[in-house]
């Protein structure tokens, strides 16, 4: 029976969107997922979990040397002190930027990323271009992000995996040592914790 095109109907979503809807319907019908739990999950990553969490971790490390030492020796436990834990943050490693080394993080396989402290990765982190070039030519990539390295700095690239997630501890900006943790956190961007920006630069 031909479809009646005289009535205005809803705009047809894209093929993958229809397939995503189909998947959810199937899984809900089978009782394998709960629609309310799915909504709560999305809401969590939209509102509660994001780079603001990681910024608090970095700020505390700058303000509190004992915390910083714990963060560098057992990142998962130190980050949990601030209440950030859970999925995709079970095995955290924090790598510290110094005058001798600049760290940056990539996932060459897919898009592994420390969700509890950074949330969902941005599109560029998931793009083929970043995933391939971060390893092959990190200095060129950093230059495109506007990161000016010190002449003394080596670049170290960390490849995240399903097991280990990295967070960069950026260098504390000059002149910020009198600030409290709240003010320090405002100097820490998402990209600074991936290693594609410097703290205080944005």
């Amino acid at each position: 029976m031909p479809h009646d095109h005289h009535e205005p109907h809803s705009l047809l979503p894209s093929d993958p969107e229809l397939r995503a809807r189909a998947l959810e319907t199937i899984l809900v019908q089978k009782g394998l997922v709960d629609p309310a739990a799915l909504s709560a999950l999305i809401d969590t990553y939209q509102n509660d979990i994001g780079p603001q969490n990681g910024a608090r971790v970095v700020a505390r490390a700058w303000a509190n040397p004992a915390f910083k030492a714990r963060l560098l020796s057992d990142a998962t436990a130190a980050i949990a002190e601030l209440g950030f834990a859970g999925r995709q943050g079970e095995h955290m490693v924090v790598v510290e930027n110094t005058a001798a080394v600049h760290n940056m993080v990539v996932c060459t396989l897919c898009s592994c990323y420390p969700w509890p402290v950074l949330g969902i990765p941005p599109a560029w982190y998931k793009s083929d271009e970043y995933r391939s070039r971060a390893v092959k030519e990190p200095r060129a990539v950093l230059a495109e992000f506007g990161v000016a390295l010190l002449g003394s700095q080596k670049v170290r690239v960390w490849d995240s995996s399903a097991e280990v997630r990295y967070l960069v501890l950026p260098m504390q900006p000059e002149g910020s040592h009198e600030l409290d943790e709240g003010a320090l956190a405002n100097l820490v961007s998402r990209n600074a914790m991936i290693g594609t920006a410097l703290a205080g630069a944005e």
Binding site: A20, L23, I42, Y45, Q46, I120
Partner: peptide
């Protein structure tokens, strides 16, 4: 975090 609602839907599933 998500450019489109269905991205979040797929992620959450």
């Amino acid at each position: 975090p998500f450019d489109a609602p269905w991205h979040g839907q797929a992620f959450s599933l």
